[in-house]
């Protein structure tokens, strides 16, 4: 991983030195070793601030709509982040020629919450590193191996997209998981309604999910509109339901499942599950996968004569 990190720094430095890009967006060391923070490198000598480790969770594509609007920027991107970039390009929010993608192979990033729930003493961590399917956690007391199932983020457990779909330079090989881990999708029918009722009851309408989402780039969000007022500002379950349900509908075929919304939610609403379910339907009925560079049009904008008519679709 250190090797890959060196290559990232090297590529970023080259791109900045040649003047090809004005800034490289990547991850930098966080305040603690198990966290990273987005960094915006605009001087070649600062390229060494870029890091790559299993804690590089942020989907940096969220910054592109602003930063790549008027000029070319570099971005260090995991395969899932690249699917976000593909979506942004297809939806005309970013021009392909305005992004220099340093694409990474990726074996998944860690879920610190999950690790915390285990035996790992987070505060003592000095470094994180993949060792095959296990996460090598080094603390002052020594190194321990944590199995992937206890360390990986949910979406990384089922991710099949481990090498960059598009990139300008590709760094590091894809790491494929040896076993196909499963994730739980919440129960069906009335259980599901109850489940979401409970989830949305927690919502404080802070909009962190929206702000961190690369696909939520509207300048004026529907929920900030006064006329027509589709949803009121008060943080009741009903209004939260309206907000999350509408946001889920807006993400159909567009959410690439990076899970950032879930990660940043201060009250732990797993919003990504909604999009994940809708995307499963899109895959089943229309063979559509969000962020697929081969797809010419967005899911809702594409029509084929043999498309399933949902009105006549029997479950």
């Amino acid at each position: 991983m250190a090797e890959i990190q060196d290559k990232i720094r090297e590529e970023a430095k080259k791109a900045l030195e040649s003047g090809e890009v004005g800034v490289v967006i990547g991850w930098g060391a966080g305040s603690v070793p198990f966290k990273t923070t987005p960094v915006f490198i605009d001087k070649p000598q600062d390229a060494d601030k870029l890091v790559w480790n299993p804690a590089c969770t942020n989907n940096l594509a969220v910054y592109l709509t602003r930063w790549a609007r008027d000029g070319k920027v570099g971005i260090v991107a995991k395969p899932c982040d690249i699917r976000s970039i593909v979506t942004l390009i297809r939806e005309k929010q970013v021009k392909r020629e305005n992004v220099f993608i340093i694409g990474l192979g990726c074996g998944g990033v860690v879920d610190t919450g999950l690790m915390e729930a285990g035996d790992v003493r987070m505060r003592e961590i000095t470094s994180l590193q993949w060792d095959g399917d296990d996460l090598m956690v080094t603390t002052e007391a020594g190194a321990v191996k944590v199995p992937a199932a206890q360390a990986l983020r949910e979406q990384c457990k089922v991710c099949h997209d481990r090498s960059p779909a598009i990139s300008d330079v590709s760094v590091g090989d894809a790491v494929a998981p040896s076993e196909d881990l499963k994730i739980e999708i919440p129960g069906l029918s009335e259980d599901r309604q109850k489940y979401w009722q409970e989830q949305f009851a927690k919502c404080i309408r802070c909009y962190a999910c929206r702000q961190v989402c690369p696909a939520c780039y509207c300048e004026t969000c529907f929920c900030d509109r006064i006329e027509p007022k589709w949803t009121a500002k008060k943080a009741t379950t009903d209004e939260a339901w309206m907000f999350h349900a509408t946001r889920a509908m807006h993400l159909v075929g567009r959410c690439i499942g990076c899970g950032e919304c879930e990660r940043v939610c201060p009250v732990g609403i797993p919003a990504v599950e909604l999009a994940r379910e809708l995307n499963a339907v899109a895959k089943e009925r229309y063979d559509f996968e969000p962020g697929d560079p081969e797809a010419e049009k967005p899911l809702l904008g594409a029509y084929k004569e043999n498309d399933v008519d949902p009105a006549h679709h029997s479950e």
Binding site: E91, K92, Q93, C218, K297, P298, L300, G301
Partner: peptide, 12 residues
């Protein structure tokens, strides 16, 4: 003023 130019309307 609020259009983001994503072009979905063009497609549909």
């Amino acid at each position: 003023d609020t259009c983001i130019g994503c072009g979905l309307c063009v497609d549909v």
